[in-house]
């Protein structure tokens, strides 16, 4: 068990340090989602009343696309110098690596969301009518839902031709219930018309189911030869 946490924290600290020094993933994600926001602002020019209904979808589409940018880089980094092969032959637990990668991506995407949300508020003149604190569990659970499956499928698409395009093709169909939960939950809070409790429970269920499935299958995926 100690080796599990040691591997987890070592990988996580290494990823954060790499990201801190290069800022590759974060910069590309930020600029990408900024572009998405600007394009959306040009495409729809809604009143404050309408924007409450559509902005939930726009926010999450922007974050979903941006997250794919980060997720594509997460394993590609380990391919250089055969780091992943070295990991495969080492006795280190595979799930520690997976969890470290997921937590790392979760942190990066969360930072992105924290930076981008004010922009959405400014561009769309948002002001929340429902209980605003509920946006926090929706954002956290929703981000984890995207990131845990995304990390798993990114590891999966490493073995395929044109892997960059493969990740969204695998991730988006499976993520539909989670995306629906995030979008509908955010809209419910923004408009204050109905309760978001159901969507929080849905996201929680989704997270539990897919975190368990990923942990159960990641070893097979990593060692598949």
């Amino acid at each position: 068990m100690t080796s599990f946490w040691a591997v987890l924290s070592a990988t996580l600290v290494k990823d954060i340090r790499l990201e801190w020094r290069s800022k590759d993933a974060l910069n590309s994600m930020l600029f990408f989602s900024l572009l998405v926001v600007v394009i959306f602002v040009f495409s729809f020019d809604p009143l404050a009343e309408e924007s409450r209904h559509i902005v939930g979808g726009l926010v999450w589409v922007a974050f979903l696309f941006a997250a794919v940018v980060a997720l594509n880089q997460t394993w590609a980094r380990e391919l250089r110098n055969q780091v992943l092969d070295a990991y495969r032959v080492s006795p280190a637990p595979a799930n520690a690596l997976f969890l470290a990668k997921s937590v790392g991506n979760f942190l990066f995407v969360s930072v992105l969301e924290a930076l981008m949300t004010p922009l959405f508020i400014v561009f769309y003149n948002l002001h929340v009518l429902g209980p605003a604190w509920q946006l926090i569990p929706i954002a956290l659970l929703g981000t984890w839902a995207l990131v845990v499956n995304g990390t798993f499928f990114a590891a999966m698409s490493l073995r395929t031709r044109n892997r960059e395009i493969m990740l969204p093709l695998l991730l988006f169909p499976i993520s539909i219930p989670a995306v629906l939960g995030m979008v509908a939950g955010t809209t419910a809070v923004l408009t204050g018309e109905n309760s978001a409790h159901f969507y929080i429970v849905l996201l929680l269920t989704y997270d539990v189911v897919f975190t368990t499935a990923s942990l159960a299958l990641f070893g097979t995926i990593l060692h598949a030869e």
Binding site: N149, M156, P177, L217, A224, E225
Partner: peptide, 26 residues
């Protein structure tokens, strides 16, 4: 099916089986 088409390495079968389980859970 796209995964099966794009991945023609020896691991395809394992990857596809894992994806099928994810799909069924979904």
């Amino acid at each position: 099916l796209v995964l099966r088409r794009f991945s023609n390495s020896a691991q395809t079968q394992m990857l596809a089986a894992a994806l099928a389980v994810f799909g069924a859970l979904d």
